[in-house]
Design a protein around this nucleic acid. Structure first.
Length: 257
DNA sequence: ATGGTAGCACGGCTA
């Protein structure tokens, strides 16, 4: 089973691009972030016509997450009970016996901004929710655009990003707390230093390979034991003719049954 | 040089 997380930066703008991706890659489970569409504007046919069931937590203009699955989709849950201020940033569903939590975590803007405090509060609320809702003994995945790069090898320059949101000690503390609840970064072993999943549109970051690995899949031990591989599919960060790419590439994890 | 680009939606916010 191949499960993918991908921040598409507007499913409206990316419709044809995502269609091409589905036709060529055909993952079993696709978790998208930053739909920037409310529920009833999401083009569900894009997925249904290709054999997926879809669960959506949409929002106009910003945020929005969905899970598309070829192997069932049960017990859908949306939103954090506290900490997300109503933003559509979390959707969970059970897929082939795996509890999948798809997240779009706040970016944080600048360390001295209110947005950064919101980000830290979001993570605190997430930690509480995960502790209450998930068990380390069950096959479960927390995946998505977590907007945290944990280690120096996950960013293009420590010098430029030290103390900046996405590479800030307060975020690293919360990342570690999440792992302490029984989760493992299952991509890490498959990704050499300098493997990134996001490159800013600005400043020629893609062309200069100035990226960050902020899109992740964290798994409980029973699920981590099933991981057979993980990759960032960089081809899908490239424009395809008229079709413009997102600023994130898909991250794909392969599981054995 | 407080930039640069993209998306939403048409001014300014968010990333």
């Amino acid at each position: 089973m191949r499960i993918v997380t991908w921040n598409v930066n507007s499913l409206k703008a990316r419709h044809d691009y995502v269609a091409a991706y589905l036709d060529e890659e055909s993952p079993d489970v696709l978790c998208l972030q930053e739909l920037k569409l409310e529920d009833d504007k999401v083009p569900t046919a894009l997925f249904v016509e290709r054999g997926y069931e879809v669960a959506i937590h949409g929002q106009r203009q910003w945020n929005g997450v969905l899970i598309a699955s070829k192997c069932g989709l049960d017990d859908v849950h949306t939103g954090l009970p506290a900490g997300d201020e109503g933003a559509a940033r979390l959707i969970a569903a059970t897929v082939a016996g795996v509890r999948v939590v798809n997240l779009y975590c706040p970016q944080g803007q600048a360390a001295d901004s209110p947005k950064f405090q919101y980000k830290l509060g979001f993570y605190d609320a997430l930690l509480e929710w995960v502790a209450a809702e998930l068990s380390a003994d069950q096959p479960a995945a927390i995946l998505g655009d977590l907007n945290i790069a944990r280690e120096a090898r996950d960013i293009f320059s420590v010098q430029q990003l030290e103390g900046v949101p996405s590479f800030h000690p307060e975020e690293h503390r919360r990342w570690d707390a999440l792992l302490d609840l029984g989760f493992v970064d299952v991509c890490r072993p498959w990704m050499p230093p300098g493997t990134y999943s996001f490159w800013d549109y600005r400043g020629g970051a893609w062309q200069r390979d100035m990226g960050m690995r902020i899109d992740h899949l964290l798994a409980t031990a029973p699920l981590a034991a099933r991981v057979r591989g993980a990759r960032v599919v960089r081809d899908w960060r490239k424009n395809r003719g008229e079709l413009r790419a997102s600023d994130h590439a898909p991250v794909e994890v392969t599981l054995r049954p």
